[in-house]
């Protein structure tokens, strides 16, 4: 009998305490930011989102740009969905890293959240996408590749990672579209990660792969891969003999960008605060060094530009997803 009493007592105690603590959370926000800042990486450690968050944390701290304590919080799951859902109900001292998935998750029908549910703060970096074949492949150029696919879209096995509807996949679809290839008929093999795609191509278990440039670069330098085209609008430093899609008659610039956003309804002052801090951050030497080490390129846009950019991107992705045959029904 006593035990059940104890249980009930514990129940009342804990619930009572939790009510108190949630009440105390609605403090005023005269001075922003107050207390600890949280940067949400909606993924496990080891990927680009986590790396971006930790790089921000480091640069802010080391350059004394922000004196508040900054924590990186990993909230992995559902291609960012879990982390962003979490962000939506947080106070403005939380930021989250994002990428085009914040648009495509909704367009693909896997999420109810849209980019409009958040406060855009900045786009920070980009990587570019590359189409890659093994060095000894009979396919010598992007044109060869597309010609072959136009005749028979199923004739080649194309590796992408880690899911359909992401930038690896859609950048390829956009290029294919220009050449009149039916992108819905292509033979895509989906691998778990960029590393798996590299392995599959090295072992020649696939014919072509689409991946980010940084994933292809080392193998390219070692003479194992040929990069047929990249999605930047100018040739990439260090890969000077790799042509862009633009040079090969496909009018596209396809960034694989990463940015930050805040919870909905941030005030003007709060947005201005981040514009100031982030623009300083991207100019720092520490940031530039991290960018170089990671093969990221500067792609900074402030909050206003980001808002506009997201709108344009959303439209572009919508068209591409229709084209790829992935649109939600």
């Amino acid at each position: 009998m006593k035990k059940s009493m104890l249980l009930i007592f514990g129940l009342i105690l804990t619930l009572g305490l939790s009510a108190c603590s949630s009440q105390s959370s609605g403090e005023g926000e005269k001075q922003y930011p107050k207390g600890n800042l949280q940067i949400i990486a909606p993924a496990t450690p080891g990927g680009g989102w986590d790396a971006t968050a930790r790089a921000m944390q480091k640069v802010f701290k080391d350059n004394d740009l922000i004196t508040n304590n900054i924590n990186v919080v990993n909230k992995p799951g559902g291609g960012g969905e879990v982390g962003w859902k979490y962000l939506k109900n947080q106070k403005p001292n939380h930021l989250a890293i994002n990428s085009s998935l914040v648009l495509t998750n909704n367009l693909l029908g896997s999420s109810d959240l849209t980019y409009k549910d958040f406060t855009p703060l900045a786009i920070l970096t980009t990587e570019w996408e590359a189409v890659v074949v093994p060095k000894d492949s009979p396919i010598k150029s992007a044109k060869d590749l597309m010609k072959k696919l136009k005749v028979n879209p199923k004739s080649l096995k194309v590796a992408v990672a880690p899911s359909l509807g992401n930038d690896d996949h859609l950048s390829f679809v956009q290029a294919a579209k220009t050449y009149g290839v039916d992108a819905t008929k292509l033979n895509f093999l989906v691998y778990g990660s960029g590393g798996d795609t590299v392995t599959a191509l090295l072992g020649k278990h696939v014919d072509v792969a689409t991946m980010s440039v940084s994933e292809a670069k080392e193998q390219y330098k070692a003479g194992k891969f040929r990069i047929l085209a990249v999605t930047s609008n100018k040739r990439i430093k260090g890969l000077d003999d790799v042509p862009t899609w633009k040079e090969q008659g496909v009018d596209m610039e396809f960034p694989h960008w990463r940015g930050v956003m805040g919870p909905p309804d941030m005030t003007k002052e709060q947005i201005a605060y981040w514009d100031k801090k982030l623009s300083k951050m991207v100019k720092s030497d520490d940031w530039k060094k991290i960018m170089k080490n990671n093969d990221w390129e500067p792609y900074y846009k402030n909050s206003k530009e980001t808002k506009k950019f997201l709108k344009e991107q959303n439209k572009m992705y919508k068209d591409l997803i229709d084209e790829a045959g992935l649109a939600k029904k």
Partner: peptide, 9 residues
């Protein structure tokens, strides 16, 4: 109970 209070308390 622990699960319910873990993040709150």
């Amino acid at each position: 109970l622990y699960t319910l209070t873990f993040e709150k308390l």
